[in-house]
Design a protein around this nucleic acid. Structure first.
Lengths: 185, 185
DNA sequence: TGCCAACCGGAGGCACCCCTCCGCTAATAT
DNA sequence: ATATTAGCGGAGGGGTGCCTCCGGTTGGCA
């Protein structure tokens, strides 16, 4: 699997690389916690790094978004292969369930991302490359409706991501309910 | 239909009442545009009113949230009666569609609302009072699954609210897809 | 080991927001 | 018409975040 690359470059020197990674990790947490307008100074603090270092690595907030987003997408794509040998319907719905839990944290980022960017297009492509085979396998096997697109499904599921549920059980139940509309049988 | 009341009181004097209403209208727009942490000074500016006036009417940001939220809920409840004479399934799905478009604007507010507040409970109740009859009529007529709750459905639909769709047509399509899981046909 | 370029971090200037306080204005009652 | 008083609005102090700039530090190579 080819890793997606980003506009910003991972530095060459060892200490710089440590800081770079720490910043992305801190940003992931901060964005999930406080939304897309989390304080950059706070992120630098969490990473144990000066604010100057943050700006050197990520000149704009967008750059940070993209770096975090890309790392999440890469992780998600990996899941797709791990469900590949399940039966068609199970594989698809397992991946979508996983998608939900991952998507929860990156919601704020997606909202804020510049959706026109080249990098966003690449991520989209990578994600579709991961999920589409599962989807089409389901359609070929006749267990998935043929009159909807994978895009429709992803957007539906990612919507459920941000709904407020009483507990995880309810989220599962609702996801199942929504997927029942997708299933043939 | 009894209108819900709020913690804050609508003033008695005519000019004060004008300002009060202008503030709620401005806040509705600002929150929808900039999210729950829109600038209060900006809201006052939009309403053509001093910042002091805003604070006099709504001592806390929460108070503003609640006032806006209540006004939206009241509007939504009104829709429920206007679809009452449609056939069961059509009535329910029409209301839910409306729910989506209304909910789009108030999403940020709901996130930020103190969900423990008495006022929130009252709104919830009002909303359920509006929608539950439509739902139960559908179940009684055998066109709605009986193994899910109205709560499940509302949360599902409100999730779709915040998904990013290419256009309204896709939103409609996805909503229909999700509702197909709900329908007994 | 020693050098030097790459890298660090935070002080500081600017902008914006929050919220309070109080002298002024004008709506309403008589 | 006048008095009363609810209501107005914005100045201002405190706080926080953004981003730049530059003197000091240190990793990596010879």
């Amino acid at each position: 699997m080819t890793e997606l690359s980003v506009g910003v470059r991972r530095p060459a020197r060892a200490d710089a690389r440590r800081n770079f990674d720490a910043l992305i990790a801190a940003a992931r947490v901060a964005f999930a916690e406080n939304g897309a307008d989390a304080s950059l100074e706070d992120i630098a603090r969490r990473a144990g790094v000066g604010i100057g270092t943050l700006y050197r690595n990520f000149p704009t907030r967008q750059d940070l978004f993209e770096a975090v987003y890309v790392s999440e997408i890469n992780e998600l794509a990996a899941v797709a292969s791990s469900v590949a040998e399940l039966p068609p319907w199970e594989a698809l719905s397992a991946w979508l369930s996983r998608f939900v839990s991952y998507a929860v944290t990156k919601r704020a980022i997606i909202d804020a991302l510049n959706r026109e960017s080249e990098m966003f297009a690449a991520c989209r492509k990578a994600m579709y490359a991961a999920g589409t085979p599962l989807f089409e396998r389901g359609q070929a096997a006749g267990v998935v409706r043929s009159d909807v697109s994978f895009d429709d499904v992803l957007r539906m599921v990612s919507g459920l991501t941000s709904a407020a549920f009483v507990d995880d059980a309810q989220r599962e139940r609702v996801l199942a309910l929504a997927l029942d509309g997708l299933r043939v049988s």
